[in-house]
């Protein structure tokens, strides 16, 4: 009886803690959604739990604001994030495969070099990066926003550990004997096996790129080429007379929607991703 009561108590405690955590996580989303339905003056009056009636007004204002091209922002963000996710996962898997499946003299130094890049913050190399793309004529284009994803050390490391646990070299050898060329072996045998790892890293890269503000803010000047985070920043720094909090909340809501949809669709992979790579299947 005593035991039953303790386990009951524990469950209650666990639920209370989880509810608090869930509240802390979701409350901001709630504020965001509520505020997106209220107009500027309502928002300035303070917080309310009850939705306002300005949802469509805000939406209309955002869509029709020529200075804030939200639709093209969504398009740009989608292009950049999707390309970055595709490039980062494919080329990281390729690099990881190269280091995993082949024996060559500089294998170890190459691995260490990649790991060193991993600890280098983007800000350190930003100046050099801007000079480089200026000279390459890529300033104010979308290219520099996703091309560097080809070299993604963190994704590489994830792929490498996943291969160690899930890709027996015998498979590669079997493919070689079957007459498959090295590239075909990678594309037709290795990549399909890497699918779970690729899915996880694609999601993470997509989200990171989607939220990236630093590099796009440095590179893009054209309104039509701006990604969503820059547009949000532009809205917030708009002049005092035109400042409309309802619009800001609406743009933020629009910008997080695709991420939320992706999260809901692929949550299975994201959860799997946490344990992926470490355990030999």
């Amino acid at each position: 009886m005593q035991e039953k009561r303790t386990s009951y108590g524990r469950t209650v405690l666990a639920y209370v803690v989880l509810i608090i955590l869930a509240f802390l996580c979701l409350f901001f989303f709630y504020i965001l959604i509520i505020n997106a339905t209220r107009n500027h003056s309502q928002i300035q009056q303070g917080f309310s739990f009850i939705p306002g009636g300005s949802f469509f007004v805000n939406f209309h204002n955002v869509i029709n604001d020529a200075n804030i091209p939200v639709l093209s922002g969504i398009k740009n963000s989608l292009i950049v994030s999707a390309c970055a996710a595709a490039l980062a996962t494919y080329f990281s898997a390729l690099t990881a495969y190269g280091l995993y499946a082949y024996e060559f003299k500089l294998k170890r130094p190459a691995f260490i070099f990649i790991m060193l890049i991993l600890v280098m913050p983007t800000q350190v190399s930003a100046l050099g990066f801007i000079r480089l793309i200026t000279q390459m004529g890529m300033m104010n284009t979308l290219w520099p926003l996703f091309l560097p994803s080809i070299a993604a050390p963190a994704v590489f490391y994830f792929m490498y550990s996943y291969m160690q646990s899930s890709l027996p070299l015998e498979l590669v050898e079997a493919a070689r004997i079957d007459g498959s060329s090295e590239f075909r072996t990678f594309n037709r045998i290795v990549l399909p096996i890497m699918k779970p790892a690729i899915a996880v890293q694609a999601i993470f890269t997509f989200v990171t790129t989607w939220n990236n503000f630093f590099i796009p803010a440095l590179v893009i000047t054209d309104n039509s080429k701006k990604t969503l985070p820059i547009l949000i920043a532009a809205l917030r720094s708009a002049d005092f007379m035109k400042f409309d909090m309802g619009k800001v909340y609406m743009v933020v809501l629009i910008s997080i929607l695709p991420i939320i949809i992706i999260y809901i669709l692929l949550s299975r992979y994201i959860i799997a991703g946490v344990t992926l790579g470490g355990v030999k299947e």
Partner: peptide
Amino acid sequence: VPPKSRDIAMVFQNYALYPHMTVYKNMAFA
């Protein structure tokens, strides 16, 4: 001579079957 040009076939200890392909495709791959 590379493995694919040696006209050999090999059976591995751990089978080395391509996990994402059906039995038919595994056999038909070469």
